[in-house]
């Protein structure tokens, strides 16, 4: 795995000599290295190890966990129950749909659109729009969870109040279309990151490129498609890797729906929480964590290869 395609800004030569000696580099890496070793690498290997045992928090297997090989993995992929609601397969499919709808389509596309729009609009519109979009991203999640709960309330919520005002009937959103609620919720919550990242990327493009296009009479869409997007391809890959991973692992919808009704919003992260911390089955929960990582890895490899392929022009 190499990072070259990602780290490319336009027209920059790749230089191979180092500015920092290996010794100074190692010293710079030490503080982060220690923290990451203790709080990321050690827990990572612990999780891998425990995923091959039947360790639980309570009951007999808490004291004497046994090595069970792939049993946890096989149980997760048990074809008899795999697709049942509340089982791993159901969660996995749900989460994949959730990632595609709310991260790739929702956050990334909306973020890209917003970033492009605010390049050209008057400063006060830009300021106002940015502020609200970013507020959705930075407010604490318990606050957000409650705000949305009030927003969607069937009887008094703001959304139904507005629907009624324009003559539409009230909706019982949390019960009737919980999946779309969490998709919209997550798009709303996370679009700011993509917007800011793409905004930074767009503003790092030399203005002369666009001026030349203007002279040639290009439309906004043509400039977007033919100049801006190809130039920020590396940034798009970075963004997709991060938001896919975050969306895949997000737990925030739990505050809105508790994973229900009837497990219809039980994302893998929520399933994992239930297995590990409500049923206290650490072995199985760890296996879920490992599978989640492998899926994240697969996503990352796809993005990287897409970014690389199109780079060769």
């Amino acid at each position: 795995m190499t990072t070259q395609p990602i780290t490319t800004a336009p027209k920059r030569k790749v230089r191979n000599f180092a500015l920092l000696s290996n010794r100074a580099g190692a010293a710079f890496l030490t503080p982060a290295g220690i923290l990451v070793a203790v709080f990321v690498i050690f827990p990572f290997f612990w999780v891998i190890f425990v995923s091959f045992t039947n360790r639980t928090l309570l009951g007999r297997t808490a004291l004497n966990p046994e090595f069970v090989g792939l049993a946890n993995y096989l149980a997760l992929f048990d074809p008899n129950i795999f697709f049942q609601r509340g089982q791993f397969g159901f969660s996995l499919i749900l989460t994949t749909q959730f990632v595609i709808a709310s991260a790739l389509i929702g956050q990334a596309l909306l973020g890209l659109l917003l970033a492009w729009l605010i390049q050209t609009v008057p400063a006060w519109v830009k300021r106002l729009t940015e502020t609200f979009v970013i507020a959705a991203w930075i407010l604490p999640e318990v606050v957000i969870g409650f705000a949305w709960f009030a927003f969607l309330d069937r009887d008094a919520g703001t959304l139904n109040m507005m629907l009624n005002a324009i003559g539409l009937p009230s909706g019982d959103f949390l019960l009737e279309s919980p999946f779309w609620v969490i998709v919209v919720f997550n798009t709303w919550r996370g679009a700011a990151f993509s917007m800011m990242l793409f905004n930074s990327a767009f503003s790092s493009i030399p203005p002369s490129y666009f001026q030349a296009a203007d002279v040639a009479g290009a439309s906004s869409w043509q400039k977007f498609r033919d100049i801006a997007v190809p130039l920020i391809r590396g940034h798009i890959v970075t963004n997709l890797i991060l938001i896919t991973m975050w969306t895949f692992n997000t737990f925030t919808p739990f505050l809105l729906t508790n994973g229900g009704p009837s497990y219809r919003t039980e994302l893998v992260s929520i399933y994992n929480y239930r297995v590990a911390f409500q049923d206290f089955q650490f072995g199985k929960g760890a296996a879920v964590g490992v599978i989640m990582m492998l899926i994240n890895l697969a996503f990352a490899l796809v993005y990287l290869s897409l970014g690389r392929k199109k780079k060769v022009r």
Partner: peptide, 19 residues
């Protein structure tokens, strides 16, 4: 990249125990 993937496992609740 590797650390990013590791951290995605650790952010799951199973890693709360080793921590």
């Amino acid at each position: 990249y590797i650390l990013l993937l590791f951290s995605s496992v650790v952010s799951g609740s199973a890693a709360m125990v080793p921590i």
